[in-house]
């Protein structure tokens, strides 16, 4: 279910003396099955943008098409849209409210008017997808750790069986292992179900590791829209808008400046390690060749 944004603008307080243009002529295509990273400094328009994708906010001008249909047209089923495009807010665990984990996850599908059996099945599947153990299902969500609570909240959205899953900083405030666990789980989920995932993040290291496309927002506009390697080449421009490249990218650039014959395109530790290993393999091979020539 692709989403198309055609020249979307959003102005807060349009009829006041201080209108703020939070989105400025944004055109994007989000095709099925992509893992997209959405980055930008605080106030760049990321959250406003994602709230347009499931119709929570209405564009001031421009149009948004879900599966070819204008979501603003008369007769468009907006309730369906909200079920198909699942949005996980920042600190979603603050929205947990039921007495046990399982009931909390059931809340969404229950509102879709499904049968009891179908609701239970979906809740069970969703909790399995986020990797929560059965032992926790009938505990109060408030007794869980921060990472577990967040998984329950994500499961609540997954139980709606969305085609597009949008996560607004899903790892904020989690410890490093919690960060990895949630993101690994989301990557696996995307593999297994083929849904589109939009990850809003402030961690360049995380974005570099997981996504296949990065959209950079600045002042309500799309600044870059490309694969991570290409986007992080523009590290100076990214710094100018309050962002950065992953730390390894800087290391590789420093190596190149020092005269090492390595590519500075690496954005993950694994890529950097391989690049350096290959460089040393070439050094060793060259030395052997030299010695061979001297011996002969």
């Amino acid at each position: 279910m692709p989403i198309i944004l055609d020249k979307v603008s959003h102005i807060y307080g349009e009829d006041t003396t201080m209108p703020v243009r939070a989105l400025d002529n944004v055109s994007l295509v989000l095709p099925d099955g992509q893992f997209i990273g959405l980055i930008g400094h605080t106030g760049s328009g990321k959250s406003t943008l994602v709230q347009h994708l499931n119709g929570l906010m209405k564009a001031t001008s421009g149009a948004i098409y879900f599966n070819g249909e204008d979501i603003d047209s008369d007769g468009f089923d907006r309730k369906m849209l909200r079920a198909r495009v699942g949005l996980v807010f920042q600190y979603p665990e603050h929205q947990l409210f039921e007495t046990d984990v399982f009931s909390d996850v059931c809340f969404g599908p229950k509102n879709l008017g499904l049968s009891k059996k179908e609701i239970d099945l979906r809740a069970y599947e969703a909790l399995k997808l986020v990797g929560l153990e059965d032992d926790y299902f009938y505990q109060s969500p408030f007794d869980l750790s921060g990472g577990q609570k967040r998984r329950v909240a994500i499961a609540g959205v997954l139980a709606m069986k969305p085609d597009v899953l949008i996560l607004d900083e899903p790892t904020a405030g989690l410890d490093p292992r919690g960060r990895d666990e949630i993101l690994d789980q989301i990557a696996r989920l995307k593999q297994e179900t083929g849904i589109t995932v939009v990850l809003v993040s402030h961690s360049m290291d995380d974005v570099a590791k997981y996504v296949d496309r990065i959209i950079v927002m600045n002042k309500g506009r799309v600044l870059y829209d490309d694969e991570p390697k290409e986007v992080f080449k523009r590290y100076r421009e990214l710094e100018a808008v309050g962002l950065a490249a992953p730390q390894v990218t800087y290391i590789m650039k420093a190596l190149r400046e020092k005269g090492y014959d390595v590519s500075d395109e690496a954005t993950t530790i694994g890529e950097a390690r391989e690049e350096i290993k290959n460089y040393f393999a070439r050094l060793v091979a060259a030395r052997k060749e030299r010695q061979g020539a001297e011996d002969a």
Partner: peptide, 14 residues
Amino acid sequence: RLDVPQVTLLAHEL
């Protein structure tokens, strides 16, 4: 459940 800075990890892996 913690980590090290990326540069520390890269050096460690090498």
